[in-house]
Simulated scan of single mutants.
Amino acid sequence: MTDDSATDSATESASGADAAISLLVVDDHPVVRDGLRGMFESAPGFRVLGEAAGGAEALTLAAALDPDVILMDLRMPGGSGVDAIRELTRRGARARVLVLTTYDTDSDTLPAIEAGATGYLLKDAPRDDLFTAVRAAAEGRTVLSPAVASRLVCAVRAPKAPGGEPLSAREREVLALVARGTSNKEIARELFISEATVKTHLTHLYAKLGVKDRAAAVAAAYDRGILG
């Protein structure tokens, strides 16, 4: 009787392990990887098969471990996440890729989605939202954080600079304030963002408009009808 019970228990345990969603965690920060591993291993229905510190290592481990879902950071010194996603897609990898990153700028979001990512979440997402997103990704469903979804909509609807990428809603807000002579510090205060974020938006604006400074950006925006 006891042996039968033990056998049944072992069978159920093995069945539960097979049903668990297997994960590969890709992030260049050991603390982040440890945190994600601990979080998923403490929750039922998940198994962390391995960790990678960069895109190149992620490709090797994905081939060896065949996870259901890959949690992928984007900006890593060991190979970019977008390049890794693109290569996984080219190889026809079974794993679904869920981007988990700090960045939600258009220059990060759009390339990752276009490369083949199934979902895109920010690292400040609540724990339960992350669990739900991984389950959805494992089923092949698209998952986007509200901020990212909003950016994608803006990218589709935004006016395009000739020969360049579309300006996001936030970039157009920053550009309008620059046109009024507002300083970076004042822009940050008005939009409730940091000065560093303002500088990032300006860098993206300059690249998209093909200019090198604030004055040229404003002139180009008026010339192209982006500013009325």
Rank of each mutant, 00 (worst) to 15 (best):
R86F: 04
P159E: 02
A207R: 15
S42Q: 12
A133Q: 05
A219I: 08
L191F: 07
L167V: 10
P111Q: 10
R214T: 11
P77V: 06
E186Y: 00
K160L: 13
Y206R: 15
R172I: 11
L59D: 00
V218W: 01
E41L: 09
R172D: 03
R91H: 10
E87L: 10
G54K: 00
R170L: 15
E165K: 15
M1S: 13
A95L: 04
D34W: 07
G16F: 05
R141G: 01
A158E: 06
R170Y: 09
R91A: 12
T2V: 12
P166M: 11
L152T: 09
L23M: 03
V198N: 07
T89C: 09
D108P: 00
R189F: 03
D34C: 02
L167F: 13
K185S: 13
T11Q: 14
L71G: 06
S42H: 07
R33V: 02
V153F: 01
Y103V: 12
D34T: 13
R91I: 03
V153Q: 04
D104I: 05
A56E: 14
R135M: 01
T197E: 15
A158V: 06
A52Y: 02
A155D: 11
A176C: 01
A133K: 02
G225Y: 07
T118K: 13
A220C: 08
P77D: 05
V97L: 07
P166V: 09
A19L: 11
L191T: 07
E190L: 14
L110V: 15
T101I: 13
A196C: 00
G78F: 05
A207L: 14
V178N: 00
A20L: 10
I113P: 05
R135K: 11
T200K: 14
V148P: 03
F40N: 00
A17D: 14
L177K: 02
A95W: 02
S194M: 03
R170N: 13
D27G: 06
N184D: 15
A176T: 11
D8F: 12
L100G: 06
D34G: 04
M1P: 07
L122E: 10
D213Y: 02
M72I: 10
D128Q: 14
N184L: 01
A84C: 10
Y206A: 08
G181E: 06
A221S: 08
A64N: 08
V26D: 05
D4E: 14
E195V: 06
D27F: 05
E139C: 00
T118W: 08
E41S: 14
A95F: 03
D73T: 12
D27E: 09
E195A: 02
K212I: 09
G55C: 04
A158F: 08
L191K: 05
G92Q: 06
L205H: 13
D108M: 15
R224K: 12
I187M: 06
K199I: 08
E186L: 10
T102L: 15
